[in-house]
Design a protein around this nucleic acid. Structure first.
Length: 800
RNA sequence: GCGGGUGUGGCGGAACUGGCAGACGCGCCAGACUUAGGAUCUGGUGGCACCCCCGUGCAGGUUCAAGUCCUGUCACCCGCACCA
């Protein structure tokens, strides 16, 4: 029978639509399952073959769960605000809304062609006012709780284009578009206090089923460290506060380093003899990103502050103060005590500037390299700390600092607050006004959404303000509090805003009274399985956990954590093994693949390509194997004889049910497919299959290749769709063989493989084995030193 | 630099708690069918001096037994806070 995939796929996609087969049911008494994939940014290039990998994976999970009787929510939407759309709109003079509509339509038709079982009735779009109304609402709640605040922050500013650039748009320190110099300009920006949730974002990971690398990456990103803050007296008669994780080494602090942006520099201006030199250095530093500044390979630079010195509180000695860009203003206090003997960066700096290196923890050779081991060494040259181990010394030092009132224990985080302002058009307007009298005031909730006004040009203004700032009619408004003159905030939100809560909206997407009803949230949340890219671990995933926790705190969401399980797929690389990108010219278009091979083959190949969590290069040649497999499956229709289950296939089919069921739960889609291929080969060897056996096989295949499974089901005479049929169950006793194949080794080398009865004892096994010619000749005339029998696994006879 | 990962045939990849390395598929080789084959079917396929031996990035170690555990080392990939 000819496998006419085009007809088959079109037919069943239409049928599913007509039946609303994949709509989540509104019956909240059913057991629920919420499967979520990251919603895409609808780019102008359309889908590429990387997108369907995670979608197909969770589609398989969803389809299986549906067949297992769950009420499944598997939604899809569009994360459509963002830079590329805006830049495209500017370049081509088309409204970003139009661009977005176009891209969404393209993406949607491409996704539909894959036969993914999304509940399209719940489709959402972050750029629709009905949606961003609630994004703004959440921001207002954050603002009211004091979690949104203004801060002076540096932005990348292109001196030629006169626009604020995203980090990505800055390549090697110059503007990506025009190649001009990029400087760091300080602007007042809205910030969200994610740091207030830092501790909970770490500790609540414990109960979650996230893959380990996601957990560790989040923990390290938040970067909790226990240390101390210490105040150093200065000769300028004030205090310089530092943060250190190694307060035990205070006796070895031979100089200090402060960030170029440190406020004391300006304060000390009159005392500093080389202020011009310092200013010049500050200018240089302002051009570098944090990333460039902390690179260890680069030679350390810095300038001594001549005229002010600090006093080491442990030794009482005066020590010099430097500015250097390897100290960041955003971490700790923006100042460090430098202990060159026990910190690599300090050591390098000290060598370069010829500063004293004093060993305070014994165990290394501090003239050769910094000794950073905290496990083995004991304190030396450190007065009252001498002889103590590092941990004990830390505790003693803290006692000392507290008793003197010059320092205390302090927990620090690497995590920084979230810069929430963008000087861009295509984002959610920040729903605040600045009143001359009242200061920053939130727009009343009844007036939400604050809609994005139509502007003539989306190009940012000369001074780096948002394009919205030019719309004076829109900007000038009345204060909702006092009715006086006020101005709207013209910055918009970052793209991350809409994606920080979208999974909540899916629960109740048409609600215009609240972001979602408490009832719907209580039923559907938390998400049972969330899959997404590893690159979202430290930003999107963390941001959305933060917003969820906040919404939990204000009693909107019923759960502390939004996602029970988080997994991550590997990237699909180009055929040359490099990342797929337009510029590399190695992008594969899924439309072509679906056209040439069919959606089922495409889906199967995406899953068969390799370990789901690992990246794998695309290979159009290899798709053939999946196509052949499906053709052979389809041809089983011609081999059907009789009904019921036969002895020949029973054991294989029970094993297969077990394998496929378990493999889907553990993301081993590739081996599930391999097992189905293996069973198919057995069926062909067998030469025939019964109707019931084929139906069973089709059910197992249906989550992976749903169209062909439906067609087989229908051709076997069933009128119900297989997508909602019951998932097969296996009988454990029917998966166990009577005999096991066991390799027999002599001195660890395999000599033969024997069939051994499953229940045989160790003695019986050895007796059987020794009768074998290869084994008996191998041990003849030698002394048996040891006999290892691992039932069901291996036999190893060690001889001398 | 910091953080996270990955190294297995010609290729993509299998291998559960240490137990036959290479499942399954691609490619390749041979045969069948055919006017034809870039279709289909059947068989074979890690290397080699082919019943031995060697083989999981490299060098050591633990063990009856190591892709898997330990120590060291090399290479590559991803992220780094205004790309999404």
């Amino acid at each position: 029978m000819l496998y006419d995939y085009k007809n088959i796929e079109g037919k069943w996609q239409k049928k599913w639509d007509e039946l609303n087969a994949f709509r989540a049911k509104q019956d909240f008494t059913l057991p629920k399952y919420y499967a979520l994939v990251e919603f895409p940014y609808p780019s102008g290039q359309g889908l590429h073959v990387g997108h369907p990998r995670p979608y197909t994976a969770l589609d398989i999970v969803s389809r299986k769960k549906r067949m297992q009787g769950y009420n499944v929510l598997f939604p899809m939407g569009w994360d459509a605000f963002g830079l590329p759309t805006e830049n495209y709109a500017i370049k081509n003079k088309i409204h970003p809304r139009i661009v977005t509509e176009r891209n969404v339509a393209r993406f949607k038709s491409q996704l539909k062609a894959l036969g993914l079982s999304f509940d399209w009735s719940r489709e959402i779009n972050t750029t629709s006012p009905e949606y961003y109304k609630w994004t703004q609402w959440i921001f207002i709640q954050l603002f009211k709780k004091g979690l949104a605040y203004k801060k002076e922050m540096a932005v990348n500013f292109c001196t030629s284009c006169k626009v604020v650039l995203a980090n990505e748009e800055v390549v090697n320190g110059v503007c990506e578009r025009c190649g001009s110099e990029v400087i760091r300009k300080v602007k007042s920006q809205w910030m969200l206090k994610i740091t207030e949730y830092a501790d909970r974002l770490i500790s609540d990971l414990d109960g979650l089923d996230f893959i380990e690398r996601v957990k560790t990456q989040q923990k390290n990103w938040i970067g909790k460290s226990k240390g101390a803050e210490i105040d150093f007296e200065t000769t300028a008669n004030d205090k310089l506060r530092v943060y250190t994780t190694r307060c035990d080494t205070l006796f070895g602090a031979t100089y200090m380093v402060i960030a170029p942006e440190h406020e004391l520099i300006v304060k000390w201006k009159d005392l500093l003899q080389n202020y011009d030199e310092i200013e010049a250095y500050k200018l240089q530093a302002s051009k570098k990103s944090d990333f460039e500044r902390t690179e260890l390979v680069k030679e350390k630079t810095g300038v001594e502050l001549k005229g002010v010195r600090a006093i080491n509180p442990a030794t009482g000695k005066e020590i010099p103060i430097f500015i250097s860009d390897y100290v960041l203003s955003g971490y700790g206090t923006g100042a460090i005590m430098a202990v060159p003997a026990h910190d690599e960066r300090d050591w390098e700096f000290a060598k370069k500037f010829n500063l004293p290196i004093i060993e305070v923890v014994a165990g290394g050779n501090v003239e050769e390299a910094a000794f950073v081991d905290v496990e083995t060494g004991k304190l030396v040259n450190s007065g009252f700390l001498n002889g103590l181990e590092v941990e004990a010394a830390k505790a003693e030092m803290i006692k000392f600092l507290e008793s003197k009132g010059i320092g205390k224990e302090k927990v620090n985080f690497k995590l920084r607050d979230w810069v929430f302002s963008r000087q861009r058009y295509w984002g959610e307007p920040i729903p605040l006004v600045k009143c001359e009298k009242c200061g920053w005031v939130a727009i009343p909730e009844s007036e939400l959404p604050v809609k994005l006004p139509d502007v003539d040009s989306y190009e940012p203004t000369e001074n780096g303000e948002s394009p919205l700032s030019l719309m004076t009619d829109w900007v000038n408004c009345k204060c909702p509090q006092c009715g006086g003159k006020a101005e709207r905030e013209t910055d918009t939100m970052p793209q991350w805003a809409g994606s920080s809560w979208y999974f909540l909206r899916y629960c109740d997407p048409d609600n215009d009274k609240e972001l979602a009803s408490a009832e719907a949230l209580k039923y559907w949340m938390p998400v049972d399985w969330y899959n997404g890219g590893m690159e979202h671990t430290t930003l999107h995933l963390l941001y959305s956990r933060f917003w969820s926790k906040f919404l939990y705190d204000i009693d909107i969401v019923p759960c502390k954590e939004p996602y029970l399980k988080r997994t991550s797929h590997g990237m699909i690389l180009g055929e040359n093994g490099e990342k797929m990108s337009k510029s590399r010219g190695n992008v594969i278009n899924p439309d072509d693949i679906i056209n040439d091979y069919g959606a089922d083959t495409m889906r199967l190949y995406e899953m068969f390509i390799g370990d789901f969590e690992q990246s794998a290069p695309w290979n159009t040649q290899s798709i053939k194997g999946c196509k052949r497999f499906l053709e052979r499956v389809y041809n089983l229709l011609d081999m059907v004889e009789g009904t019921g289950f036969t002895k020949e296939l029973e054991k294989d089919l029970h094993k297969l049910i077990k394998k496929v069921t378990n493999d889907i739960d553990t993301m081993k889609f590739n081996t599930a497919i391999a097992a189905m291929m293996g069973t198919l080969n057995t069926i062909y060897d067998n030469g025939k299959i019964t109707k019931d056996e084929l139906l069973l096989f089709a059910k197992l295949l249906s989550p992976f290749a749903p169209h062909i499974a439906e067609e087989i089901n229908s051709r076997l005479g069933n009128s119900d769709i297989i997508s909602l049929a019951q998932w097969p169950e296996y009988d454990e006793s029917k998966t166990i063989d009577d005999t096991v194949e066991m390799p027999v080794q002599i001195n660890g080398k395999v000599r033969c493989v024997m069939q051994i009865p499953r229940e045989a004892s160790k003695e019986d096994i050895l007796e059987i084995v020794k009768k074998d010619d290869k084994i008996s000749s191998g041990i003849e005339g030698k002394t048996i030193v040891k006999e290892i029998v691992v039932p069901g696994k291996i036999i190893n006879i060690v001889v001398k």
